[in-house]
Amino acid sequence: MSIPKTHPFDFDPTYGMPLAELLAVEPPEAPEGFDAFWQARYLKALAVDPQPVLRRSKITHPDWHVLDLVYLSTGSFRIGGWLILPRKGEVRRGLVVGHGYGGRDRPEFDLPVKETAVLFPCCRGLSLSARPPISQNPSWHVLHDIDKPKSYIIGGCVEDIWLAVSTLVALYPWLSGYIGYSGISFGGGVGAMAIAYEQRIDRGHLTLPSFGDQPLRLTLPTVGSAQSVQEYYKKHADVLETLRLYDAATAASRIKVPMLVAVALFDPSVAPPCQFAVANAIPKCNEIFILDAGHFDYPDRAEQEAILRDKVGQFFRVP
């Protein structure tokens, strides 16, 4: 174990919690109407025709065909991204890959998957899906419409994931029921909310998931987008009403498919107890993989990430 001993933060990114305590963290109680709120949004998203448009990308790779992609999400929001297809073998599985709050400027080609169509959407307001007046700065993006429970941008980002699934099904109808999701940090939290109600996803992988246990998230010193939400909360305490509807841990307790979740013991950006709140809440979690740290470098990082990569490859192996 190589939890960082020195760091530049004026708080302890382990929050003084050993692994046993972290594994005992429970999700918060769901607010009234939580399931009805999300089920209605999911049904509305299912009715949207994503109308995907593909064109050959300027990005090339020896193992993958690379296509630039645009599809329509809810509210006719144009979502940009990429679709990569294996040069060898059939397409027998689909995979939607979310991104962190830094967005994405190209697809990932080192994913340990074969015979898989991989879709990399950029959630609304970020990277290829940038659109004024939404800020691409995570500290501002996370606040967009936070005062409007039904319009908060995080909900739109969840819908963008659902429409990514719709896009894969529109292009490859035989993949329905064989589509996975993988997301890190921002993409992990949004992914938990999406998978909870998405019946066409058969398994999911989350790393360092954000947006877990929102009431607790507001109280723990942190950096990045969570700090921005904390500053807003100090002046607008009623925002908790919105945040409780967008709680990845509450959503995770509704997930019914196998999951592989990687969580960290030390993380200055996504507090570990909030990550564990998500992982611990999942009823059928196949495995919780423990990283020494997240959003921060550490001695055993490459070795741990290599082990996790192998597990991800096995997890998304074509049936």
Rank of each mutant, 00 (worst) to 15 (best):
G187N: 05
A130Q: 11
A226V: 04
W174F: 01
K256P: 06
L126Y: 02
V158S: 13
A306M: 15
S182V: 00
L72G: 01
S76M: 01
G81N: 03
T116I: 02
P18I: 12
A281S: 14
V263C: 15
E231N: 14
P273H: 11
R131Y: 01
S2W: 04
D145W: 02
V270Y: 08
K256I: 05
H99W: 05
P133Y: 08
L175F: 04
I153S: 13
G81A: 02
H65F: 08
Y101G: 10
V158M: 12
K44M: 14
P258F: 07
A170E: 15
K150A: 15
G103R: 03
P4G: 09
T167H: 13
Y232N: 12
P149Q: 04
L208P: 00
R92I: 04
G183K: 07
E241F: 08
G224L: 05
R301H: 12
D310N: 05
P138I: 08
V169L: 10
P107I: 05
I134S: 11
S76Y: 01
V25H: 06
S127I: 09
S73W: 02
R309T: 09
P13E: 03
R301A: 14
V257C: 10
C123V: 12
A271D: 10
G75S: 06
G224N: 11
D68P: 05
C285S: 12
R203S: 13
G191E: 10
I134C: 11
V190N: 10
L243V: 08
I288R: 12
V97S: 13
I201N: 03
Q230V: 10
G191L: 10
K284E: 14
T74P: 01
L218N: 14
L206E: 05
V113C: 11
D49H: 02
I84E: 01
G33P: 02
A20K: 07
Q227R: 15
G100P: 02
